[in-house]
Design a protein around this nucleic acid. Sequence first.
DNA 1: GTGCTATATGGAGACTGCCTCCGTATCTAG
DNA 2: CTAGATACGGAGGCAGTCTCCATATAGCAC
Lengths: 221, 221
Amino acid sequence: MDTDVVSGEPSRLRADARRNRDRILRTAMRHFSLHGINASLDEIAREAEVGTGTLYRHFPSREALLAAALEDQQKELLACAQRAGKLTDSGAALGAWLAALQDYLRSFNGLPAPVLAAVEERESPLCLSCNALVALTEDFLVRAQQDGRARATVTANELFLSALGMAWVLNRAEACGTTRQALEKVLAHGYLADGYLVDGCLADGHLAAADEPPAPKPPAG
Amino acid sequence: MDTDVVSGEPSRLRADARRNRDRILRTAMRHFSLHGINASLDEIAREAEVGTGTLYRHFPSREALLAAALEDQQKELLACAQRAGKLTDSGAALGAWLAALQDYLRSFNGLPAPVLAAVEERESPLCLSCNALVALTEDFLVRAQQDGRARATVTANELFLSALGMAWVLNRAEACGTTRQALEKVLAHGYLADGYLVDGCLADGHLAAADEPPAPKPPAG
DNA sequence: GTGCTATATGGAGACTGCCTCCGTATCTAG
DNA sequence: CTAGATACGGAGGCAGTCTCCATATAGCAC
């Protein structure tokens, strides 16, 4: 019966319970920041000077704790979305939104994984905010598409998932000799040169155990 | 002193050791297939009817076991690369290679993670094969770039990492209402409409705590 | 065959992390 | 002040990783 994030109920928690909850949350935020989303929950409880039972009563799962620890960042992200929405150039707005999304997904190391998991699991504590993120992506995308700035055949779901994938890679990308900007550019423009509409080349490009390769397609441009 | 994969040495293993190694490997391949790359090693040892010590002597780490279990798939991937290399259309060749790479990365659930880790960790047992994959990607990419089929500013590293990210997403993507083809298309073409060269919109599109958004850019086309 | 030794085995056990359960302590309303 | 609702803590069960070393055995020399 902790605070209900959604309805924002006043949470009739006993004073000591509220104090403990706050200590756990603050400690968790630090540990997630330092050691990523897989930080030891026992360790968090110990450092918050609280029994593990207390931690699990307040936050029944790692995801619940994660969701609570992410509230601030989510607010910041929504603020970014507001600012991006005010841009008159819908293409720039979409780009700004995706950049903000990347920032959010880098709040804790490894965050893209539970977010991706939450996209499908209806009961995840992260699910609600996830749906909101997809919805926002959709808003920015359709606006850009109406202006002819974004490809008409991309869906919000695809774009969101792709952004998730990029964010996941980005966790380690710096160590792999790439920059965030470079990957964002790939996501924006793809790897193909403009003007080549090679719809089929990937979809039916399978070469598994084919004796003879299919006839190559000539350039379309 | 097991088989050295690289130099292909005959491996002076005692007969019983070789037998055990093979049993472990076969069991591991099945378990990785069934339960993903985090399959329990103890369980593998138990089912191979071998002590855990024996497993760890033959394969000192999960990655070592993984690398050994992936040998077949790697051979298949290289065969695909050979076939793709014979395509006269360099764009189609690149697409076919990336598709084959996706297949490889789906050999075991969760494989993209250790592969990404191996890209930077010089000592990982997966590292060697990883470098080979990046090198192959580069071959296909530069050929496509020379023919004007791929964007000139994309690097092999970026492309490989992006493909990794897509493969990671794809693990769960089906459950999220997207298809492999859709994501490959995003990777190929990006989300922006052709003709808009908005280099800056992502890189400097940061809106964090800026009171006023920067002036939007007019379309370049 | 017999013995010898380098080689290989197995599983106990130390360690870490997750999570539950329930006897006990504490808060707070009346 | 007290009763009872609420919250606490940490012992302990479970699962996983990995090491260590007393024991077993393959394979060679004879």
